[in-house]
């Protein structure tokens, strides 16, 4: 068996809120709670959830930009929470990040050559100026830009091209892992398609594994082989995307899938809706985190936290009653169809 590229065990990240009253203890937000996940090499992994669920915190922790409160995060077998900053810096050449906003993540005062070469300086590369230029040219070519573009400044590019520059910057150190936090959500539909195709080409060409964070389910379904759905800092469902989105088991995943607007399905009545909005979770409550919004919640859900259990072949779900909700949903859908 090959070594997983990312292995996360019992990850927890708590944030202490400022004390509201002198006479009460400060409350704690559980941004991530008991996260276990494994990303296999060359199987791109999607992380899905609503804003505030902790998906970006998870990305930052995988990149070593934030420290977990407890638990281990192994990237290629090395626990990045335990190594020194100098070692982490060296390892970074093997894992890079692409951010959501191609306008904010590129320094407007630097030309593209400097921007794309930046990681080489950061990892303490020893190449000559000429070699660096060649590497930048190569990276730009592989994202579909011209080598001559390296003399330009970010403002001279369109949104899609800027995102390509950001991807070129991530590519230049030849990483085996790229964490992409909402890489296409700021882009127009036709440009989004170009960037998604590019990411897939890079996957095939360089054997890069992507960790792809997005709120757009169809994009994750297209770009990734595996995915996890996070709700309030916990993974509620996880598995191959083909199963996860075609046959969602957790009521939360179902409501997400149902909520996506579809072309040509006018005035569709939605079978499942999650009634109220996401709340941040303070204090380690007992019971299922989704119980308050779940239309299937029973007594057991309020007292016992459901564990993530494997249902079939790597598809796992954290719900006590997923069998029941599945059949309910099926009948509800036939009712809607009729």
């Amino acid at each position: 068996m090959t070594q997983p590229i990312i292995e996360i065990r019992d990850l927890e990240r708590r944030f202490q809120l400022p004390r509201e009253s002198l006479f009460r203890p400060a409350s704690t937000v559980y941004a991530l709670n008991g996260i276990n996940l494994t990303v296999e090499p060359r199987r791109s992994f999607g992380i899905v959830g609503e804003s505030g669920c902790g998906k970006s915190t998870l990305a930052r922790i995988i990149m070593g930009l934030d420290k977990p409160s407890s638990g281990t995060v192994k990237v290629k077998g090395k626990d990045i929470t335990a190594i020194s900053p100098a070692e982490l810096r060296k390892m970074r050449s093997d894992f890079q990040m692409v951010f959501q906003d191609p306008f904010g993540s590129l320094n407007p005062r630097h030309h593209v050559e400097r921007i794309v070469a930046e990681p080489l300086f950061a990892v303490g590369g020893t190449e000559s100026k000429q070699e660096r230029k060649e590497k930048v040219a190569e990276a730009l070519t592989s994202v579909g830009l011209r080598p001559t573009d390296m003399e330009k400044y970010p403002h001279e590019f369109s949104g899609g091209q800027r995102q390509r520059v950001a991807i070129a910057r991530a590519l230049i150190t030849r990483p085996s892992l790229i964490v992409a936090d909402e890489p296409v959500s700021a882009l127009d539909v036709s440009v989004q398609a170009q960037v998604l195709n590019l990411l897939r080409d890079l996957e095939d060409q360089f054997g890069i594994t992507f960790v792809f964070i997005s709120h757009n389910l169809a994009v994750v379904d297209y770009a990734c082989q595996d995915a996890a759905v996070i709700y309030l800092g916990r993974i509620v469902e996880q598995g191959p995307t083909s199963q996860l989105f075609n046959n969602p088991l957790h009521p939360y995943t179902q409501s997400l899938v149902d909520a996506v607007p579809h072309v040509g399905v006018k005035n569709r009545r939605v079978a499942r809706q999650a009634p109220t909005a996401l709340k941040t979770q303070t204090a380690a409550q007992t019971g299922c985190t989704f119980a308050g919004r779940c239309s299937f919640a029973k007594e057991r859900c309020r007292v016992e936290q459901p564990a993530l259990r494997d249902v079939d072949g790597g598809h796992s779900v954290a719900c006590h009653f997923f069998e029941a909700t599945r059949s309910d949903r099926a009948s509800a859908q036939t009712a809607v169809a009729v």
Partner: peptide, 24 residues
């Protein structure tokens, strides 16, 4: 027509490429 084809849909196979509109 091209815009509609550029949207990723659920259940697209992994071998399928998204259609893009060249240029800007």
């Amino acid at each position: 027509s091209r815009l509609l084809e550029a949207i990723p849909r659920f259940g697209m196979s992994r071998s399928e490429r998204l259609k893009t509109i060249p240029g800007t």
